[in-house]
């Protein structure tokens, strides 16, 4: 077992304090930032039947975001959300509850909306990640985006990119969505300002083709 080579010395203990102390010791010696990049064939432990061992230190991983392959060096514990925001400066995806409960951090994984705060960045490898920046920009509005503006579906706007991501995915899979469908589509998105009726109206206007958008 090669565990002791990588793991903290007292990792057997489930005590949080003890563990974090150990992590500190490791961090000091290996450096948190630069460790060799991991790829599928990095140090396979044949006798343990392990095809990949990654971490606990930071390693470089590749993520396909908005059609481009990005390299990012993160520890395994870094969530996709933190990787996007803190490491790749893609801040349209918001951090609000950090527990999967509010939807502000919604991105698409292979076209499906997920809460990026509940996904480890390394688990997003091999998937097509789409963030709000990949969905639309102020110069390249989608019909749904234009409808959001027209129907004033953003007040403070902090929940809005997440709402957009959820609604865009829902309309892509069901272009004939009705009120009940658009409500269900954003059931995982919390808006504290109370923009829901405007969000529904915006989405339904796109369904009806009432909004030609700018693109």
């Amino acid at each position: 077992m090669k565990h002791d080579k990588h793991g903290p010395p007292d990792s057997r203990a489930i005590s949080r304090r003890a563990f974090i102390k150990g992590a500190g010791a490791i961090a000091a010696t290996t450096g948190l930032i630069r460790t060799p990049p991991a790829s599928a064939d990095a140090a396979p432990d044949a006798q343990d039947g392990i095809v990949e061992r990654i971490g606990p230190g930071a390693q470089t991983i590749e993520l396909k975001i908005n059609g481009e392959v990005k390299r990012v060096t993160v520890e395994p514990r870094v969530t996709l959300l933190r990787a996007l925001r803190d490491h790749l400066n893609l801040t349209g995806t918001k951090l609000v509850c950090d527990r999967g409960a509010c939807g502000a951090c919604t991105v698409h994984l292979d076209g499906k909306p997920v809460t990026s705060c509940m996904v480890l960045a390394l688990d997003a490898r091999g998937h097509e990640i789409t963030t709000i920046e990949g969905l639309l920009t102020p110069d390249r509005m989608s019909p749904l985006g234009a409808a959001f503006v027209e129907h004033d579906a953003a007040q403070c706007g902090f929940c809005t990119p997440g709402m957009m991501m959820s609604m865009a995915a829902a309309l892509a899979s069901n272009p004939k969505a009705q009120l009940e469908d658009v409500k269900r589509a954003v059931a995982g998105n919390i808006c504290r300002c109370g923009t829901y009726p405007h969000v529904f109206a915006a989405a339904l206007s796109v369904v009806r083709g009432g909004n030609r958008g700018e693109s």
Binding site: R85, T91, G92, E133, G145, V149, D152, A154, T160, P161
Partner: peptide, 19 residues
Amino acid sequence: TPRVDGALRVTGAARYTYD
């Protein structure tokens, strides 16, 4: 009249303190 910054908020381009 549409919000001046509507498009910036909707597209995630608006930079909040957290960003």
